[in-house]
Simulated scan of single mutants.
Amino acid sequence: MLFKGIGHFFLDLRIFIWDAWLTLLNVVLPRLPSRARGIDSEDGSLWPEYVPPKEGDSRCSCPALNALANHGILPHDGKNVKFTEITDKVHETFNFAVTFATYVSRNGADTLGKDYNKDTCNLSDLDKHNGIEHDASLLRQDAYFSKSQGQPHIPYIEELLALASSTDSNDKKVLTVADLSKFSSKRRADSRRENPQFQLDDTHKIFGSANSSTLLAIFGGKVDDLEIFLKEERIPERWESTARSRKGLTFIAFNPTTFKVEHGIDEKPYEKEEGKKGEKA
């Protein structure tokens, strides 16, 4: 165990040094041209055909991985998926840096006690509670209330998107860091109050804020695209990642958004709001 721990430490160190190098390269290299990262299907469209999951297909709490399976970028049944394949397809489709995609996929393998380089998983395996899946998700009910995390909880998604407080150059609604912090605050307060088995340690708090930050980093917070992506777990037609750095979105470039979202989370207003409701009743 000690050897494995030391080995993981040096592997993580190598990834973060590599990430720093990619971040520097992104400063000097030109940004990606439009459509450069698209995965073309046979008919020439930007993404392979979307096919909803059928009964027996494996899905998880991550809309990005589910979307990859729904488009056949990962195996459509979501079964026997190589961890290394997850890394490659997440990088190619969403333009996360290879370092970012590798670290997250390897963390999933470690959570399941599997070998990242050799083993496979079903997508639903990734929903081991308090592994990657956690309470107070913005898109799913807590595991206490819903044993299957493969389906998005539409009321949460609609509530989140309704909070969009900004607009883009085309006057289309856009989510902001403050919007994500606000909804995260409410979800944590609600979950803490309603879920008798509620757990959310500091690691999962940061992980939750990182997950929500991808809605800004990869989708630019655009509500029209997010509504399709989050509700249907489908990549919008002709969509491209808003992360256009040549070497992809690195940890160093991404983490400031995560910390801003987490720093802005404050459950107290929602605790007081619930208290006032109780007093009126």
Rank of each mutant, 00 (worst) to 15 (best):
R193Q: 13
H204N: 13
E227M: 10
K231C: 14
G208S: 15
S169Q: 11
R188C: 07
S165F: 06
K231W: 03
A217R: 10
A210K: 07
E232R: 13
K205M: 13
S212M: 14
T176P: 06
Q199E: 14
P152D: 01
F198K: 00
I228F: 07
L200N: 03
P236N: 12
K182T: 14
L215W: 08
I157P: 02
L226F: 12
S169Y: 02
S241Q: 05
T242A: 04
A164H: 04
L180Y: 03
V174E: 01
E233V: 09
E194V: 03
L216K: 05
I228G: 04
K186Q: 12
S209M: 11
K173H: 09
S169P: 00
I228T: 15
D168A: 08
S185P: 05
I218D: 00
D179P: 11
S209Y: 07
P152I: 12
V177T: 14
Q149E: 05
T176V: 09
K231R: 13
H204D: 04
D202E: 14
L226C: 12
D225M: 07
S209N: 12
I206S: 13
E159T: 14
E159S: 14
F198R: 00
S191L: 02
K173M: 07
F229L: 09
R192M: 13
R193I: 06
P196I: 03
D202Y: 10
K231M: 11
D179H: 08
E194H: 11
W239F: 15
A217V: 05
T167W: 00
L230A: 06
E158F: 04
F219V: 08
V177K: 06
H204K: 13
G208V: 01
L163P: 01
